[in-house]
Design a protein around this nucleic acid. Structure first.
Length: 860
RNA sequence: GCGAGAGUGGCGGAAUUGGCAGACGCACUGGACUUAGGAUCCAGCCCGCCUUUGCGGAUAGGGGUUCAAAUCCCCUCUCUCGCACCA
């Protein structure tokens, strides 16, 4: 047994033992309770970053904790390996995406192994492999057959110079990130998944996920955005057709004085066709399309519009309403047309003022009557209807239903429900993604690839330039094929699928990762393991990934593949890892190792330390896990990640904090080594003999620590307070006087404390604890040692401190026996020397006693 | 902008249900040990006043509810995440 703690040596040793013994491999075991713990799998971007380390450490602690509690734990890891960065690396450095990706995977796998995570590596999967995506292509075919996958025209960011589609993150200030050309919008025919078919169930089940954080549920509900309202038909003034709008404010329909149409809607150009203003309107539309969508719908953005030389009629007032194209109307929501009620909607108000359009008040507030000529802003609150025909005098909220019914009765509208959620666009005009299994035949049209021909394999031999549209479209060996129906020549679909598709079902695949039978998921195995008992990942995935996964689960359930409704029973969303930034005048942001003694190592100029921000490559405020493992060992890194803050909050990185964690492990190591000779031959105290004084106190503290750590992990994953509690116990042990060698009772109490410290720390720092465990003479894997159960009686305090307040201010404290009666405590409080000074000569109005906590005496 | 969160000493954080604000750690200060200390052990450590006992203030800022508020309510400010082609 080494006297000095040498993490690098012992961590390697234990990692090898775990791997050789295969102790983290699992199979279905009907006799054991299962626990499926899953962390969001990473995109193999090159190296593991601290955010991953934090995420996977949290998961590993829970996995190991559950295992020690007797569960059959599934804890897999894999790679979300399709995606844009691989394609960018290929364009920038000439490396094939597959090569780049696989090299990253092998490096990151090595890093994860060095962290000592308890993964069953036999279940590793990589989504860019045909064995994985072939099943996704099968699901696509099923969905196509049922109309859940369909094609429609939609807008993409288009760089005219690169002749390629740009992701939102490739657009910087309205320009292409590669060539700085102004980005345009372009319509393309694209594939969609009909997630809106499941919108009601997705919404309903939000309330059936008690294990999810409330804020994630709220965000999902808001994203779905169900609103109750009314579709209203506005006939064109010239009698040619109608414009339909969706509104939740049909109570204001009498106040609608003009009509707004989203500028990019085809209706706009239809209305002005052949009119003198056609050219001008076209220019306006092109301009709006170039405006940033987020910006132009914001409250403060200049509202712009253009009269289309057309009118429709208000269905209730019969008044003529001029029709405008506008930049602030969202084309994708509702019908893309909005009835403008300038008196009661701020955006419409601003628009009306700018273009001199009439206002009509239809809701009067109860306190102050509105006057159109003096209104400075729209009145958006409640009130009584006026200027609204037979509805005058009604409260506006009560009129909602009445007006909807009336519109329905005269055939001018009907009650409607609108969702904000749109169908999921999955087409990507990129190479590094799963091919969509569709063919286009001149005679037969759109033809699905027959199941027997799956997978449609992504070809390797391809040149990537970043320009000229989809690389697959230029590669004839892939593109040209024959139609399975008629045998004529056909072209393959060259769009690939959004990478969110892979991550929407990978958790099922982990249950039977090598299953080669249709549909790639072994029903019995999936039934045993799914749903995921605890899912852990970054808060940044609160909406899209989680919503898509929920949708995919329900969809696969309806095809009979799955037998549950929701994939993730419990969800933990962890916060970001942040660190202060450093920059110098000459070189901009600096990596931590480019700063020495407050100076830039390259130019010796003064370094400015900025505020703490999310770690990112661009800000260079990153720390290298390799460096940390090499210098401190994985256990220290794990410990710091857990100790620095609770998982759901952002973590502030601190190099000194890492030192502190390292020091604690050394301290724990030393106390065990120091006691080792003495306690080697005693058994842990079992309570069969009487103890008192310091020994009794130590044992109480030991059991209190078991209770605290168990609750902190079990109830709320607060590892930081769990670690604090163990630190306190270690401190208490240091302060104990070392008993004589023959005092076996005392030594056995100390042994109980030391074993407790080791076991409680085992899920957190698995290597050092395994080493110490064997030093105590044990042989079995610490990973399978049962979690300790505490004795509440031993943990119970004998005496408690009662705080005495006068008028809410603490004035004294008394120590009483834990079971002292309330009346006696109140009596002691009133007769306390210090308290009497405060209350003498005053009238005692009330006495409040909070059991076992405090007495508050209210005096006048 | 919209939606969702967060804000506590010099720093990270604790206070689980409205009940002693500051556990634990870092940094700092002092002491012990030592050839040495950037090791270790022990102690001090929110701010102000009184050299003690003590008194007052303090949980982003302002207001409110309550015997009692870091915690609940309202307003303001700052920061973080998401906003549909980053994953």
């Amino acid at each position: 047994m080494e006297d000095k703690y040498k993490p690098q040596e012992l961590e390697k040793k234990w990692q090898k033992i775990w791997e050789d013994k295969g102790i983290f491999k699992v199979t279905e075991d009907a006799g054991k309770k299962k626990y499926y713990l899953l962390e969001m799998f990473p995109y193999p971007s090159g190296k593991i970053h601290i955010g991953h380390v934090r995420n996977y450490t949290i998961g590993d602690v829970v996995a190991r904790y559950k295992r020690m509690n007797g569960y059959n734990v599934l804890h897999p890891m894999g790679w979300d390996s399709f995606g844009m960065p691989a394609e960018n690396a290929a364009i920038d450095h000439g490396i094939h995406p597959a090569t780049w990706t696989n090299e990253n995977i092998s490096y990151m796998k090595k890093q994860l192994k060095e962290m000592g995570f308890s993964y069953d590596w036999d279940r590793e999967l990589s989504t860019c492999e045909p064995e994985y995506y072939r099943w996704e292509q099968l699901f696509f075919l099923w969905m196509y057959e049922k109309g859940l996958a369909y094609k429609k025209s939609s807008i993409v960011n288009w760089c005219i110079n690169c002749q390629t589609v740009l992701a939102n993150e490739q657009v910087e200030a309205g320009q292409c990130w590669r060539c700085s050309t102004e980005v345009e919008e372009k319509y393309l025919d694209q594939w969609f998944f009909r997630i809106t078919d499941y919108v009601e169930e997705l919404l309903d089940y939000c309330d059936k996920l008690p294990g999810w954080p409330e804020r994630v549920i709220t965000m999902q509900k808001n994203w779905i955005g169900k609103s109750y309202g009314c579709d209203i038909l506005f006939p064109m003034a010239d009698g040619n057709g109608t414009i339909t709008v969706f509104t939740t404010r049909q109570d204001t329909v009498f106040g609608a004085t003009f009509m707004l149409v989203a500028a990019e809607l085809p209706l706009v150009m239809d209305l002005v066709k052949g009119k003198p203003i056609e050219h001008e309107v076209r220019e306006f539309v092109e301009k709006v399309k170039k405006q940033d969508k987020l910006m132009r719908t914001s409250e403060y953005y200049e509202k712009e519009g253009m009269f289309l030389d057309a009118y429709c009629l208000n269905p209730l007032t019969k008044k003529k309403m001029p029709i405008f194209a506008a930049n602030f109307v969202v084309a994708e929501y509702g019908t893309g047309c909005v009835m403008a009620v300038p008196a009661h909607d701020q955006r419409d108000f601003e628009f009306a003022k700018k273009y001199n359009l009439p206002l009509l008040v239809v809701i009067q507030p109860h306190n102050k009557p509105l006057n159109v000529s003096t209104m400075k802003e729209a009145y958006v609150d409640e009130g009584m209807l006026v200027n609204s025909g037979q509805f005058n005098g009604m409260e506006n909220l009560k009129a909602l239903d009445a007006i909807a019914s009336y519109l329905e009765s005269i055939g001018r509208g009907k009650k409607a429900i609108q969702y904000r959620l749109r169908d999921w666009g999955i087409s990507r005009q990129r190479y590094w993604g799963a091919p969509i299994p569709i063919l286009y035949c001149d005679t037969c049209g759109t033809v699905p690839v027959p199941e027997s021909e799956l997978p449609v394999i992504l070809p390797r031999e391809i040149e990537l330039t970043g320009a000229g549209g989809s690389p697959l479209a230029k590669y004839d060996a892939f593109l040209k094929t024959s139609c399975p129906t008629c045998g004529n020549t056909a072209k393959r679909e060259t769009d690939t699928m959004d990478t969110f598709v892979e991550s929407s079902w990978y958790f099922n695949r982990f249950c039977s990762p090598h299953c080669g039978e249709k549909p790639g998921l072994d029903k019995q195995k999936v039934h045993y393991w799914m749903p995921v008992d605890q899912y852990i990942g970054g808060i940044e995935h609160a909406i899209l990934h989680l919503l898509y996964s929920r949708f995919f689960t329900k969809m696969l359930r309806d095809y009979g593949v799955l037998d549950f409704d929701e994939p993730f029973t419990n969800l933990l969303t962890q916060g970001m890892v942040c660190k202060e930034t450093a920059r110098c005048k000459e070189h901009g942001y600096l990596f931590p190792d480019e700063v020495k003694d407050g100076k830039c190592t390259r130019c010796q100029s003064e370094v400015t330390i900025g505020k703490s921000e999310k770690m990112s490559k661009s800000l260079k405020n990153v720390v290298d896990p390799d460096y940390l493992i090499k210098n401190y060992g994985a256990d220290t890194v794990r410990m710091f990640c857990l100790f620095a803050s609770p998982p759901e909050k952002d973590l502030e990185w601190s190099d000194q904090g890492v030192e502190g964690s390292f020091r604690f492990l050394n301290r724990a190591w030393r106390i065990v080594i120091d006691c080792l000779e003495d306690i080697k031959h005693v058994t842990p105290f079992d309570g069969s003999r009487d103890i008192d004084g310091d020994l009794k106190n130590l044992r109480r503290k030991t059991h209190q620590t078991m209770r605290k750590v168990t609750r902190d992990i079990e109830d709320r994953f607060h590892f930081n307070t769990a670690i604090s509690a163990v630190m306190e116990l270690v401190n208490a042990l240091y302060l104990m006087e070392r008993p004589a060698r023959e005092n076996t009772t005392a030594l056995s109490v100390i042994r109980e404390t030391i074993e407790t410290i080791i076991i409680l720390l085992a899920p957190i720092v698995p290597h050092i604890t395994e080493e110490l465990w064997t030093a105590l003479g044990y042989e079995s894997n610490l990973a399978d040692v049962p979690w300790p159960s505490y004795d509440n009686e031993v943990a119970a305090e004998e005496e408690i401190t009662i705080v005495i307040q006068v008028n809410g201010k603490v004035r004294s404290r008394i120590v009483v026996s834990a079971d002292e009666e309330a009346t006696k405590i109140k009596d002691l409080a009133l007769n306390d020397e210090k308290i009497m000074n405060y209350i003498s000569g005053k009238k005692v109005l009330r006495e409040i006693y909070v059991p076992k906590k405090l007495v508050n005496i209210v005096v006048q």
